[in-house]
């Protein structure tokens, strides 16, 4: 049986529907990514999986136990790193780790091999108060604390938000090593570029999964031609592109605007002439789809279907 089985979970807060029927399974030693913007329902899903809140309907089993009835068993077997930094800021690095080891009935020595790679990086600062660490250091310490009892499943809610690019890269390398230990990981992130580092990903929007697959399969399934454009007036360019009849979906993506087109045989020369007449010195090129493009495309399709 898979360590994480989520089946048709619904959850609402007052009038707000946070999750509208979410299902997935994550296998042993798999890094399962949940990708989506803020407010898409990621944290609610994590809190249901970690037994912190109850779903309105649907079932969820973690490490073989039901999140509602057998929550105590789950709490012994999982590691959880919440979205915001949740360690004791007035305690030192070492004190935090010792405390969390004790809470789980273990010691640092017992599972040192699990956290060794990560802990070695923060060990030089072990007497420093956790509140005085840099963002990347904090996340590494939080990961150590979540790992110290050798959990079967690790839940990481936006572990790299607010962390510099170098630390983010290091963080993902650590997750890769934990995978070799057979630990199942469910990771959420708003960064689309991190999606490629997961074994499988689910794209989430407004409490619904838009698709679940390996990152490569998701980008490969993007069949519509995709274009990128930029000019000296990016804001006007966005409006002008959206006004152009053959352009279907146009959105901002980094320094370019990406867009898909309607029908076969898109005439780039005609577009260039149109943009020049609008006063743009535009650069237009065809590109390969990224996860972000797939997300935008699927989100657009989903909202059209619901209308």
């Amino acid at each position: 049986m898979n360590p994480v089985i989520v089946n048709d979970i619904h959850k609402h807060y007052g009038d707000v529907q946070a999750l509208r029927g979410v299902s997935f399974e994550a296998g042993r030693g798999e890094i399962f990514g949940i990708i989506g913007p803020d407010g898409a329902g990621k944290t609610s899903l994590f809190r249901i999986m970690t037994t912190l809140i109850l779903p309105d309907s649907g079932t969820c089993r973690v490490a073989g136990f039901d999140v509602v009835k057998e929550y105590k068993e789950i709490r012994k077997r999982v590691g959880y790193m919440p979205g915001r930094f949740s360690l004791y800021q007035d305690m030192s690095v070492e004190e935090n780790l010792t405390f969390f080891a004790a809470v789980f009935g273990t010691t640092i020595e017992e599972n040192y091999h699990l956290v060794a790679d990560i802990y070695r990086q923060i060990e030089p600062f072990k007497t420093r108060r956790a509140g005085k660490l840099s963002g990347g250091m904090k996340q590494k310490l939080a990961l150590c604390c979540a790992l110290i009892h050798k959990p079967e499943v690790l839940f990481l809610d936006e572990p790299t938000t607010g962390v510099d690019p170098v630390s983010r890269k290091e963080f993902w390398e650590m997750l890769k090593r934990l995978k070799a230990e057979g630990i199942t990981m469910v990771v959420s992130t708003p960064y689309m570029d991190e999606a490629r580092l997961c074994d499988r990903i689910a794209l989430i929007k407004d409490g619904r999964f838009l698709g679940i697959d390996k990152p490569n399969n998701i980008t490969a399934s993007f069949r519509t031609p995709l274009w990128a454009a930029k000019s000296q007036h990016m804001y006007h360019l966005l409006n002008d592109l959206r006004a152009y009849p053959d352009i279907d979906n146009c959105y901002v993506s980094g320094e370019y605007h990406h867009f898909t087109t309607r029908g076969e045989g898109f005439d780039t020369d005609a577009l260039n002439r149109y943009l020049t007449s609008k006063g743009h010195a535009a650069e237009v090129k065809q590109i390969e789809a990224t996860i972000e493009d797939c997300y935008m495309h699927l989100a657009k399709t989903a909202s059209r279907e619901s209308e």
Binding site: T50, T51, L52, K72, R75, K76, V78, Y80, P82, R84, F85, S86, L87, Y88, Q89, F100, V103, F104, G105, C145, A146
Partner: peptide, 13 residues
Amino acid sequence: ETGTMEVLLVSPM
């Protein structure tokens, strides 16, 4: 308030 209760609850404590 600081969110540490979240972590404590997801423990055998």
